[in-house]
Simulated scan of single mutants.
Amino acid sequence: MAEAVRAARAVRGRAEGSRRSLGAFGRALPPVALLALFFLYPLVLVVRQSFRPDSGGTSVQPYADVFASEAFRQALWTTVWLALASTAGCLVLGFLLALVIAFVPFPGAKAVARFVDVFLSFPSFLITLALLFVYGSVGMANGAWTGLTGAAQGPFQFLNTPWGVLLAEITYFTPFVMRPLLAAFSQLDTAQLEVAGSLGARAPRIVRTVILPEALPALAAGGSLVLVLCLNEFGIVLFTGAKGVTTLPMLVYSKAILESDYPGACVVAVVNVLISVGLYGLYRVVSRRAGA
């Protein structure tokens, strides 16, 4: 009799577990369906189009044509070096600015820290336009120079070069490094700094031996995120109008809009997505280890 009761309870438990599983599946189905409709389906269309040359049929010829082109290799190289250089600049500048905000007392430090959060919501083209107003060919800096010297043009003519793109990306993405750093610095035990100072350690040594080791996880997380964002940046390159600066997103735009080469554009887009997804996976791993 007892065994029969236990068996009946086990059956009821399995039935209830099945009902809970079905209920969870039913609740998860709508968001999964929306994700598939608005994200995965367009992505599938892009991948499918990348295997369909203009001549018809299904072929890897679009990949062969794109990989063999000098424009793709140049765009890939430009994208990589700009992303790496921008990330390095953001790490150095973000670390220095975060140090000042977190450890150097000055009026308005909290307001500046809050502004960093607000800055993250700004569109990238807004920063580029601001730099154009200051350093553009007819910007404030060149206008002041020509007004003082009478020269035909000012000396600041770098915004339409790769260096202008680099400056704009560092300016825009540095707060993405500062935000996790400020969070990490807020959890740092200030007693360690006081002890190091009482033992005669100067500021550079305190930064190198006490602060930097604590900041490394946040630096890695912020740097990984900036690297992913720089690889996919389109607005900054477009609005600076940099001559000869063609990144992978710009190449997608050029092939799709200017050349009407949709298979080639889809091939470049697939490559860009694969690189971004790989780096995003790295960012997630680093973020989990950093506790971000």
Results as ranks from 00 to 15, higher is better:
143 G>V: 06
143 G>P: 03
143 G>S: 15
146 T>W: 02
147 G>P: 00
147 G>D: 11
148 L>H: 09
150 G>W: 03
151 A>M: 03
151 A>D: 11
151 A>V: 06
155 P>K: 04
155 P>H: 10
156 F>D: 11
156 F>T: 07
156 F>R: 00
157 Q>I: 06
158 F>M: 07
161 T>K: 05
162 P>I: 07
163 W>Y: 14
166 L>R: 00
167 L>S: 05
168 A>M: 01
168 A>N: 03
169 E>L: 15
169 E>Q: 14
170 I>S: 07
172 Y>R: 04
173 F>W: 15
173 F>Q: 14
174 T>R: 02
174 T>Q: 05
174 T>S: 13
175 P>V: 11
175 P>R: 00
176 F>P: 01
178 M>I: 10
179 R>A: 14
179 R>L: 14
179 R>E: 13
181 L>C: 11
181 L>N: 08
183 A>I: 05
183 A>R: 03
184 A>V: 01
185 F>Y: 14
185 F>R: 00
187 Q>Y: 06
188 L>R: 01
191 A>I: 03
191 A>M: 09
191 A>W: 03
192 Q>M: 14
192 Q>G: 07
192 Q>K: 05
193 L>N: 12
194 E>D: 14
194 E>S: 12
198 S>H: 06
199 L>C: 12
200 G>F: 07
200 G>W: 01
202 R>I: 06
205 R>A: 13
206 I>G: 09
206 I>D: 06
208 R>W: 15
213 P>K: 01
214 E>V: 12
215 A>F: 04
216 L>Y: 06
216 L>P: 05
218 A>S: 14
218 A>L: 07
218 A>Q: 04
219 L>C: 09
219 L>H: 02
221 A>L: 05
222 G>M: 09
223 G>Q: 03
223 G>D: 09
226 V>N: 06
226 V>Q: 07
226 V>T: 13
227 L>T: 12
227 L>R: 02
228 V>A: 08
229 L>T: 08
229 L>M: 15
230 C>A: 15
230 C>I: 05
233 E>N: 12
235 G>S: 15
238 L>K: 04
238 L>P: 00
238 L>R: 04
240 T>D: 11
240 T>S: 12
242 A>N: 08
243 K>C: 00
244 G>P: 04
244 G>N: 10
245 V>F: 07
246 T>H: 08
247 T>H: 08
247 T>E: 11
248 L>V: 10
248 L>M: 15
248 L>F: 07
252 V>C: 07
253 Y>P: 00
254 S>G: 06
